[in-house]
Structures are given as structure tokens and as C-alpha cells.
């Protein structure tokens, strides 16, 4: 039921989800089976007088505690690893690594507002604070196979930027700047939601993540923010699919 993952690192989160939910399902089924057996075997009509001790075989059920400990430790290991990749490493360090590896990245500032998102782009030159900066409402346009570094804040109350398809979520907090990043690998149009209650129209705080191929993105950024034809063509392409 998970929405399709279009990011390079989303699998790290998915792995933890699959392990924790799957492990929980298995432990749950085993526990329920044992419970049903006990309830059935020791019902009053079958066993009118209680035994003076728990049958030795059933005492082994306490091993579930050890299973839990081992399960917990493995879970913590995979989980902390993914968390380390996503959030523990400082963004500056990740950026440096990306540059060193010769990979490309874009930056964008995101501001949560009641009840819409604004996305500030650095423009053609890729630098903030220059005249070609521009802002778009409710649409985040990024190129395929580029790292996207997001600086996140809010103008009024707390919001939370949630992009299910790249498996990231982080709160946008007024008066504070938070960071997240992802690397989309598949072009398309995806939805962005707000995941922290922010007032009346919280449920309508929708934005779009538009992932363009590198050429499309170049075409778009050349004349952005006025160049909407690229986005329109792109929408038509998606509609045809």
C-alpha cells in the first residue's frame, strides 16, 4: 500500500518499514496462535480443575521476550543507519560529498503558510540573493537525478512538509530553519501534503512536486517563472499516459 518510491534513498526508509511492520505481523501471528491454543486447551469444559503449575512446554513462551530483544536490536540498527544517512549528517557535509562525487544538486527554500506552500528558487544562477530569484506557490519543480536540498521554515504556525513519494517529512517551524533533502529519480507529478495540524484548511494544503527530465528543467529554468509552457506540455504528457 506504500505509494511508489521515486527517490534514490527512499528504500532505506522502506526497508525499516518492511522490517518493523513485517516483524510485528510475524510476532503478532505467533503470539495469537499461542494465545488461542492456551485459551482452547484450558477452557473450563476441557480442563475443569486448574493445574498446579504452568506446563513446562508453555513456560518456553518466555523466549518471546528474547526474540523481542533481538528484534529490537536489529530494528534499531537498520533504523539508526537510515536516520544517519538522512538527518544526522550535517547538510553542508552532504553537499560537499555530492560536489566531490561530481553529482549535481539544486536548492530551494520552502515556506509553509496558512494554507499553502511557497517555493523560492535561486533562478538560473543557482544562487540565492540575486535578482533572478523567484517564488512559486504550491509547485516544487526539480530536475531528475539531482539532489534537492530544501531549507524549510514557516511564516505563521507549524506545518510539516510531507512528500510521500520520496519518503521525507519534516516540520516547518516559524522562526527556525530546518533542512531536508532527497534525490528524485523518476520524472512525473507527485503530491505534497501538510502533516501537522495548522488550522481550518490543513487538509487542503496541497502542493505538487514536479520532477522534470534534465533538458525539460533547463528549458523551464531559462525563462522561469514565466515559462509555463514546459509544465503544460509535461502535464499533457502525463495525462496521455
Amino acid at each position: 500500500m506504500l505509494p511508489i518510491d521515486i527517490s534514490e534513498h527512499g528504500y532505506l526508509v522502506d526497508r525499516v518499514i518492511k522490517f518493523s511492520v513485517g516483524g510485528g505481523v510475524i510476532i503478532g501471528i505467533v503470539s495469537f496462535a499461542i494465545l488461542f491454543y492456551i485459551l482452547w486447551r484450558f477452557r473450563r469444559s476441557k480442563n475443569p480443575t486448574p493445574l498446579s503449575d504452568v506446563p513446562p512446554l508453555l513456560k518456553k513462551v518466555v523466549y518471546i521476550d528474547f526474540v523481542m530483544i533481538i528484534f529490537d536490536l536489529i530494528l534499531l540498527f537498520v533504523s539508526t543507519y537510515a536516520w544517519f544517512i538522512f538527518f544526522i549528517r550535517p547538510v553542508e557535509k552532504i553537499k560537499k560529498e555530492v560536489v566531490d562525487k561530481g553529482e549535481k544538486f539544486v536548492e530551494v527554500k520552502v515556506i509553509g503558510r496558512q494554507f499553502f506552500w511557497t517555493f523560492e528558487y535561486p533562478g538560473k544562477d543557482g544562487k540565492f540573493g540575486t535578482p533572478d530569484d523567484f517564488t512559486l506557490g504550491n509547485v516544487l519543480v526539480v530536475p531528475e537525478n539531482h539532489y534537492v536540498f530544501v531549507k524549510l521554515t514557516a511564516a505563521d504556525v507549524i506545518h510539516s512538509l510531507f512528500i510521500p513519494n520520496v519518503r521525507v517529512k519534516y516540520d516547518a517551524i516559524p522562526g527556525k530553519e530546518t533542512h531536508l533533502w532527497f534525490k528524485p529519480t523518476k520524472s512525473g507529478k507527485y503530491e505534497i501534503a501538510c502533516a501537522e495540524i495548522c488550522g481550518e484548511m490543513h487538509y487542503r494544503m496541497k502542493a505538487y512536486l514536479v520532477v522534470l527530465s534534465e533538458e525539460d528543467y533547463k528549458k523551464w529554468i531559462e525563462n522561469a517563472p514565466y515559462e509555463v509552457s514546459v509544465l503544460k506540455d509535461f502535464e499533457e504528457k502525463i495525462a496521455k499516459k
Binding site: 537510515a82 536516520w83 517529512k169
Partner: peptide
């Protein structure tokens, strides 16, 4: 029986990486 389900479904939320997705 329901506590078993409640307890086990706490783990994906307590593990910090899956909570990125499941939070809220």
C-alpha cells in the same frame, strides 16, 4: 489480545527512520 497489536504497532513509530514516513 488488542494490547499485543497496540504494542507491536508502536515499533514502526518508535524506530526513528520508519517514523519519518509514519509520523502524523
Amino acid at each position: 489480545a488488542m494490547f499485543i497489536i497496540g504494542g507491536l504497532t508502536g515499533l514502526p513509530l518508535g524506530a526513528v527512520a520508519s517514523d519519518i514516513y509514519f509520523h502524523d
